[in-house]
């Protein structure tokens, strides 16, 4: 079994089911990417794995332990970091305070972790006394990722981290995410920019209507004519 896996997930937000039995799995040190058309349930699948919606059936397993019944907070405490798509920083607080809040649950010394975050995202060191809301879009995303890293998670989930940032910033963000992955963290990422995301994906899932349509490594899917035709615009 993979390090983190959501298996046969079925559920929705109370109305009709959005997830219809999809399975998402990721290993430590790998990047798993979820792509697919609008309304395919990509973000929903990720939120289900975090516990933000009630599953009807299916289970979520972390490091061999069934965590399906845990609250999102409890899952965060177990080592899952989550970066929401929007409102993912505390705009009125400084960058450093954002990081401190990310580590709210920790009782040990967090200075080394903050230092690691600054090494990973050097720009944040310069801006650490500045209100996070005053930063540029790309910098805000870095704050958001760094905040989630503060619990020293073993899994990092990112919901469309590159939404609304320029292509150059997107490339930089992807580079950083790869670096995070190299530290041994399992990364699950929902992406709108399918082609670029597949390029960095160790494992990729194409979801349609809440079901797995294609699964494979990023390279395989990029090479798959069907995937190219339907989802990558030829």
């Amino acid at each position: 079994m993979s390090y983190l896996a959501g298996v046969d997930l079925v559920g929705g937000y109370g109305g009709a089911d959005i997830l219809n039995g999809c399975t998402i799995a990721v290993e430590r040190g790998q990047i798993a990417v979820i792509v697919g058309p609008n309304g395919a349930g990509k973000s929903t699948a990720m939120k289900a794995m975090l516990g933000l919606l009630q599953l009807r059936t299916g289970q979520v397993v972390l490091d061999g332990e069934d965590i399906t019944a845990l609250s999102p907070q409890a899952r965060v405490a177990k080592g899952i970091g989550f970066v929401p798509q929007t409102s993912n920083i505390f705009t009125g607080m400084t960058v450093e305070e954002n990081l401190q809040m990310g580590a709210y649950l920790r009782t040990d010394d967090i200075t080394p972790t903050i230092e690691q975050c600054y090494e990973l995202f050097p720009i944040l060191r310069d801006k650490r006394k500045q209100a996070a809301g005053e930063l540029s879009g790309g910098q805000r995303q870095q704050v958001a990722v760094a905040r989630a890293m503060m619990t020293e998670p073993s899994v990092l989930m990112l919901d469309e981290p590159t939404a609304g940032v320029s292509p150059i910033v997107m490339d930089e963000l992807f580079d950083r995410i790869i670096e995070v992955g190299r530290t041994g963290v399992a990364i699950v990422m929902v992406e709108q920019n399918a082609r670029q995301a597949l390029q960095i994906a160790d494992q990729a899932y194409v979801l349609v209507s809440g079901e797995n349509r294609h699964t494979g490594s990023g390279e395989e899917l990029l090479a798959d004519a069907n995937v190219r035709k339907s989802f990558l615009g030829g």
């Binding site: 505390f90 009125g92 607080m93 305070e97 709210y104």
Partner: peptide, 22 residues
């Protein structure tokens, strides 16, 4: 203070504060 900062965080962005374990 830690609690004071948590209060500001909660006021700033409730969902994210909950996610951070506040």
């Amino acid at each position: 203070s830690r609690t004071g900062k948590a209060m500001r965080a909660f006021s700033d962005n409730e969902d994210l504060a909950l996610l951070s374990g506040i």
